[in-house]
Design a protein around this nucleic acid. Sequence first.
DNA 1: GTTGTCGAGTTTTCGCGCTA
DNA 2: TAGCGCGAAAACTCGACAAC
Length: 287
Amino acid sequence: MWPSVFTVPPFNYESELHLETANAECNASGTYLSLPPKLKSHILERLSEEILKLKVYPTDNDLNDVAEALVKKHPCLSEQGSFNGCYGWKISLKYKMANLRSKLRGLGCPEVTINSLKNKNQDKRLAASNVKKPRRAEVNYCPQHPKGETTESLEKDRVALLSEIKKRNNEHIVKLKMEKTFSYRRQEILKGEPLIADFKSRWPALFTAREIDREFHRISTLPLLSTFCAALDQYSPRLMEIFRCKGGAAGRKIRNVMVEISKDDTIQTRRACVLKYLCIYLNEDHE
DNA sequence: GTTGTCGAGTTTTCGCGCTA
DNA sequence: TAGCGCGAAAACTCGACAAC
């Protein structure tokens, strides 16, 4: 997750010494540092390393955060003539990240190679078209294959999974193979954008409650069920208020089902009922 | 309609090592 | 020490799409 306040990383000894002296001079006499290219290059390099730990595609606001944090920590780096003192830094970071992505693309980093022109559909082979990047909470968006594995070897594991899933008491093996083939599955989804029915026939093992929970965890590093239930519990009182205010046929239906809670007000019943009311509220089949 | 962003490619700048 | 070539990094351009 992008931090609310970006922490500027420490630079190498030489650069820190340079900045320390320049900051002292800036505080004493208000003179800003005339930046040597080598120092600028090192600063951009270190900042881009830190940004890369969080995002391959930082937004304009993200880069603004970084630039602001930089001039806040090192006032001598403020730019005269810039409306906020760091606009030039933001632009340089933007270039730096774009060049870094080009470098990573050349090295085969999957998260950026999926957006290279040669990996786009022929009819939409345009740079800005359909750029795939992690959405909120997607930590392992497009991971690399495990060491020593290739697309071909993982395809063999996928085929093996089709028979493994049919065996009894074989959950452990299925779990291991699903774990192993995660990167392959992600790349298949992101590159191929398959239809759900096709994907389901290729990966039937994924469509079980346990494996969906695990897959969610692999992508977001969060446990799906407990995260969901915690949020459900948090919003339940407010949802109940909304349901009570609902009028019409849906309102009557909800009030009929509400009797269940009065009979057995445990946490499980309450959760089940809130989900049921939500279905009715949204005019969907709660059964 | 405007602004920002993308990948790819190009140009510019800079530093380094070598040589005379 | 100046001049040169080279490579890496930074900066820029392009033509398009996407988001607001």
